[in-house]
Design a protein around this nucleic acid. Sequence first.
DNA 1: ACAATAAAAACGAACGTTCGTTCTATTTTT
DNA 2: AAAAATAGAACGAACGTTCGTTTTTATTGT
Lengths: 246, 246
Amino acid sequence: MNYREFQKTMNSSGEAICKEVFLENQDAIRIKKEKTAVKNFKKIFDAVFQITYEKGFQAMSMRDLSSKTAMSMGALYGYFKSKEELLAIIQKQGRTMIQRVLETFFHESDDPVTRLRHLIKAHLFLSEAARPWFYFTFMEARNLSPAALESVISLEEYTEDILVTILEQGEAQGLFIQRDHRLTASIIKSMQQDWYLKRWKYTKRDISVDYYADYVLEVIERFCLSPEAIERRTSPEPGQAGIIAS
Amino acid sequence: MNYREFQKTMNSSGEAICKEVFLENQDAIRIKKEKTAVKNFKKIFDAVFQITYEKGFQAMSMRDLSSKTAMSMGALYGYFKSKEELLAIIQKQGRTMIQRVLETFFHESDDPVTRLRHLIKAHLFLSEAARPWFYFTFMEARNLSPAALESVISLEEYTEDILVTILEQGEAQGLFIQRDHRLTASIIKSMQQDWYLKRWKYTKRDISVDYYADYVLEVIERFCLSPEAIERRTSPEPGQAGIIAS
DNA sequence: ACAATAAAAACGAACGTTCGTTCTATTTTT
DNA sequence: AAAAATAGAACGAACGTTCGTTTTTATTGT
């Protein structure tokens, strides 16, 4: 799987997310018609991501948001009760979206090795396709209420748990070396995170997400794979290890 | 080298940094006597780190800072010209401190392999000893002026350059495999960064910086070291590779 | 040793601005 | 003409910053 293939399986525009936001918060917002709500939620989210990427959410004023979206203050407040709630809505929707996609990719294969590959790639590709959501979730977590912050932490632990499970299964089947799997998972996550936190760097160097994903996989497999698993590696997916210097 | 040894080579308290801040900005601040300035700069920095860790710098009001430091508003403004300048001072001082320490560790050994080990460890240990400075430098970079932001980026690139240099030297000597060294350096940095960005996670799991450093080294060496270098590895420093499952 | 005096530092109320939010009049859509 | 959505002026609270005053510290003269 490469990024192009991944994109096809996703509804690329954020329209579906906006629709879900509308349906979930329908009682708390003033706008009645779905079409209007979805259109303007998209406008609002895009503007928030744009402004926030440069200044942070706290530094973004409602007047900034008003002028970027070309909506009046009164119009904006038809879509959320307060600035704090707007933050909470974005954070929550981002998290559920991420969690949902990762879950589908977890239940896709049986072999631990290919399962690990798919999951690492899926996570990276998703963070590429929905970069603003990932960046926002990470950088603006501080401003959340304690309860919401708990959810952020539990998502971090949840995604690690999935990786740990795979690594343990793999070890039981003799495919992975005995390691501190939890820490390995942490390290995998740190490399995934770098992709969307330092995106400017990789853009500048013309590094594609496919290239990056293969590199990360190579690092992890060199570290985790047992000698038997390495033997097996070259034949089933020949194009996979294209990075290794020939 | 472990963390305890590293700490001894550093002046642990931030007093030296505060003194330098005083001397560098002496013309811009109202306070005349070094002793008073140093004492209160330390109080101010500690308070800023504490408040900022929870809310971010923008969300911190000068009244927050006033009550946390137990200094009046008027007193505070004797130490910096504006809130923005306070941010710039902390950022700049943090960067020069980091750069200075890393430079000394770069010129410490000849062999690329031990040089790489020392540098990775030094970076991790420094981020442990001066965690608030690292965290602040990363998280509050957004609020900087374009010129100051350029400095942040150039420090990121500088530290990567050092790693790339070592990896290239090592490859020339047949100690490292041919790789995309720049990307390897990026990945090393991402793991180092995780240590201070997600410190709460590692604290919760009782993972020491020594343990983490050895784990990172093992990941990188498995990925980079040539077969000859691996052969050599067990004899010169026997205690080094204690992580590998026996 | 001790007032008297000058210098340094701290204080905190007050200023103008900007913030998030509200509300009613108006426009647009159905 | 009824309902839905937008406009933008207005509000009090909170912001960063200033400044005249008070308190603390250091220096001087006797």
